[in-house]
Computed example of a mutant assay.
Amino acid sequence: MENAQINLLDYLRARTQVDLDTFDVHVTREVEQCVDCTSNQQYEYYTELVKQSRRDVLNHAIELAANMHERFPTVPREELTVEIGAILLAMEARPFVTGNMHLMVNPNYAYNQRQTVDAAKRLHRLFHDLDPSFDASRLVLKIAATWEGLQACRELRYSRIQTLATTLFTMEQAILAGEAGCVSISPFVHELKEIFTPSYTGSDPLLPLCVQAQRWFQQQSWPTKVKACATIGLNEILQLAGVAALTLVPDDLKLLQSSHKPADEVQSLSLFSDASALQDQLVYPSYIDDEAGYRMAFARAEEGRAQLKLGQAINIFCDFQTKAEQLVRDARRRDV
């Protein structure tokens, strides 16, 4: 029965942790239960809060921010409101996943270690205040994989705050994230712009990076997991069967759930099936205490293209953060 037709979602789940990339509670009810749930400034904080059907969440966030602002006087009211709104959305989605909830730290702090640490600690405190029953060990904060961001992850580890290194495109970032103690990394298989602009053609998909990073973490006996994201099409997803985790948008989950293919065809696609290659020893330098060495190595990665990808992704996230904060301003004016 080697060529028997198998369900693609069942096949993937047997080899990889499947996570959900949405805080849309209506969608979470439609897909089979996933492990972790994640969000960021563009998929949720703005896209969800701007919906008319989410006006109650936005208004509640505005009200809570007004009442709590005196506890965070240095944080702009709009920024605090967006953070609270994200937590309220996470609280709604939580019953539909079994694992961790992921929230992204304000990307405007991507190049400021101190502000990143402060914002991460604030999100932890806010989540506890808004939902005291929530187990803080299930909260993971997504932080941009800049030098400053990853040093913030290193600092947050000592406060027992879990972090995920996002906007990751190179092994240099992966190595530093592992050394910093991130619980996971999210390699972007495609540039973020390519996901939202079909006419834009980026560089080749970074599927091999996912394999290489996972091999490195295993070789070093580090607990950091590879949580790949930003895939395009079913073939790329099936090629990543065997990665520690995959973050998938609802449309891809539904397509996997409704698709069947011959078992041998599907199994031959995985990049993680070559046992001999996985045994090869990798050699990389340490970066955790070598800022100059890291910055030079990252600047040279992909002949400089990695820096452009990182900057592009952070800019896109910052744009949506700005839109979300403007949404709050507009809503407050309407209520005056």
Rank of each mutant, 00 (worst) to 15 (best):
E2Y: 04
Q5C: 08
N7L: 14
L8I: 03
L9I: 09
Y11M: 03
R15W: 07
R15T: 02
V18S: 00
L20I: 05
V25M: 01
R29K: 15
D36T: 12
Y43F: 12
Y45M: 02
K51F: 06
Q52V: 13
R54M: 15
R55L: 07
D56I: 04
L64F: 12
P73M: 01
T81R: 10
V82I: 05
A90V: 07
M91V: 15
A93N: 05
F96S: 11
F96N: 14
V97A: 11
V97R: 03
T98L: 00
Y109S: 14
Y109C: 05
R122M: 15
H124L: 13
R125M: 02
F127M: 06
F127Q: 12
D135C: 12
L139I: 15
K142P: 11
L156S: 02
L164C: 08
T167R: 09
Q173L: 02
A174T: 02
A174F: 01
A177V: 07
S203V: 14
W216E: 02
P223Q: 09
P223I: 03
T224M: 10
I232Y: 02
T247N: 13
S259L: 06
D264N: 04
V266I: 08
S276L: 05
A277C: 03
I288G: 00
D289C: 12
E291Q: 13
Y294P: 05
A301W: 02
E302F: 10
E302V: 03
G304H: 03
G311P: 01
D319E: 15
D330W: 08
